[in-house]
């Protein structure tokens, strides 16, 4: 229960930070750059970066354990924790990919004219 409260408090801090940043973006006139899809993409990129860092850390720990013979118990605990994080991150990444996939067609319809893909057609005789 106590941990749950802490998590909720932390999440509300994130929400507040986001609200403040969106207000600033609105005052700057760039609020439309940060659509729901864009934020999801930022989060997905962040997950991938964290995943890369986790993979690197896992490789380092495994190398350390096999080559230098450091405290195996401690390293194993770290590895176990890392595995949990990696699984969560992979799961989250998949969930994000799915939700981005859902958002994409809707976002494509709402794209402003200036951002829609352009097709150039030249009219005239070929040289």
């Amino acid at each position: 229960m106590r941990g749950n409260k802490k998590i909720k408090a932390q999440l509300s801090i994130f929400r507040e930070l986001e609200t403040q940043l969106f207000t600033q973006a609105e005052r700057l006139g760039i609020r439309d750059r940060f659509s729901a899809l864009q934020i999801k993409e930022y989060e997905h990129d962040a997950i991938r970066q964290h995943l890369i860092a986790f993979y690197q850390e896992r490789a380092n720990l495994e190398y350390e354990m096999s080559m230098f013979g450091t405290d195996k118990k401690e390293t194993l605990i770290k590895l176990e924790r890392l595995e949990v994080y990696i699984k969560r991150a992979e799961r989250l990444a998949k969930a994000y990919e799915k939700s981005i996939g859902k958002l994409l067609p809707a976002a494509g319809q709402k794209l402003p004219v200036s951002e829609r893909p352009r097709v150039f057609v030249t009219i005239g005789a070929d040289q």
């Binding site: 999440l11 994130f14 986001e18 934020i39 930022y42 989060e43 962040a46 997950i47 964290h50």
Partner: peptide
């Protein structure tokens, strides 16, 4: 914020 949120 997005990065910290997902890490959390």
């Amino acid at each position: 914020v997005a990065s910290e949120k997902v890490l959390f």
